[in-house]
Design a protein around this nucleic acid. Structure first.
Lengths: 218, 218
DNA sequence: ACCACCTATATTGTCGACAATTATTGCAAA
DNA sequence: TTTGCAATAATTGTCGACAATATAGGTGGT
């Protein structure tokens, strides 16, 4: 997923740490010791500190002065708040995508959906993982709004993925979500900003409700 | 504006730098030399680096690996994109405020508006500066959503203020904005989420149009 | 037994020096 | 004169050591 090449060791360390946190290799709510990580990842404490600071801007860790940093704790409340922000930002992204995406970009997104349509039959799980991410990614970048792109792609999406991975999200919503995606693309193709935003907000709201239901069943 | 006490020197340096950037003491689009700032603010380069990193998370500076950091450039396009995000986030904040604010908090906000109403007559300028900030601040915190609070208060609002200060925003919209604020508070008091969000979005949209008009006149 | 205080330990914050990368200047060739 | 390359200067990235702060453990008093 198009990441700007990580040139500096702090970049690489940041990405390694981020992935390990998202995947749960570093447990949620655990304390991050700078010394310990420094030896474990074999870099100086300075780059660990910088990496931790960047993780904090992703809302993946929380840092307290003179105390240290902890990986965020996953909670139902946190999930709800996360999806509330997603609803607001991605709704606006869909609106702006309907305004700013080129016809070529829209065609490309439709092609993506078509190709996914086939894969859904073979392996439903696939769609939930990569397909959904791809779709939302294109909408957000299609908004052409730097703030939206930055906050969502470099920030919240990693936290979203962390919830998905660690709470084992992979539901029967696959085909339903596919239809919702198609309707959103249609609205964007028709340049219907109002509808695009509304459908995207409902899509995310449904998705949240689905996850909440799963949570209460465990 | 309730800021958590800055304990560490990196905190203080960050805040000094942030204010100097917002006020234009450090010009927009200018390059930030770590060495130079280190001598000028009389701290080590390490704390300057950390401060710059935090400024980057506020979207006040942009950093490139092995090249350095620059203060953001102010542009009409940037302003539009900023207000698009504000519209989305503060609209949601108003919705959640209508859901989550206590009756006492709402009463306090109404009292704030009342007190402002008197000051508006004496010094119209005051309201634009402090009053508007206070109002939006209360709505956002009233949403009780950590992500919204963090992104807006610690992030975008400083950029908003930077635009206001450096482009000399202080318009005849004062009393108009006051009425809009009152209507939003009414919607929140009535627990009308839908209306609260809609009014807040229109309020921000108007505000954006007003600023854009000012820009084109200069 | 419990609480307060003090000491010792461990962790984070800050600093200056060195390494790596980028920008600049000067020179030479077309 | 302009273009390309090379050496040099300047800036950022990384490191290990020291200082400041917070945590843990123990001691003494009530």
């Amino acid at each position: 997923m198009n990441q700007v090449a990580a040139v500096t060791t702090a970049d690489k360390t940041f990405i390694k740490l981020r992935d390990d946190i998202v995947e749960g290799v570093i447990p949620a709510a655990s304390k991050l010791s700078e010394m310990e990580l420094s030896t474990k990842y074999d870099v100086s404490r300075a780059v660990i500190r910088e990496a931790i600071n960047r993780l904090a801007t992703c809302h993946l860790v929380e840092r307290k002065a003179n105390v240290g940093a902890r990986v965020v704790a996953l909670s139902a409340k946190g999930l709800v708040q996360l999806y509330q922000v997603r609803e607001a930002l991605e709704g606006m992204a869909a609106r702006l995508a309907a305004r700013n995406m080129s016809d070529e970009e829209i065609a490309g997104m439709q092609a993506l959906l078509d190709s996914h349509f086939n894969e859904v039959k073979d392996d439903e799980r696939y769609y939930q993982e990569a397909g959904d991410v791809d779709f939302h990614y294109r909408i957000v970048t299609g908004s052409k709004n730097e703030h939206l792109i930055s906050v969502l792609i470099n920030g919240l999406y990693h936290l979203v993925r962390m919830y998905r991975v660690q709470l084992g999200m992979a539901g029967p919503r696959v085909t339903t979500a596919f239809d919702e995606h198609q309707h959103i693309v249609n609205a964007i193709a028709n340049r219907d900003e109002e509808l695009a935003e509304m459908l995207m907000r409902r899509h995310i709201l449904y998705s949240k409700n689905n996850i909440e239901k799963k949570l209460s069943n465990d």
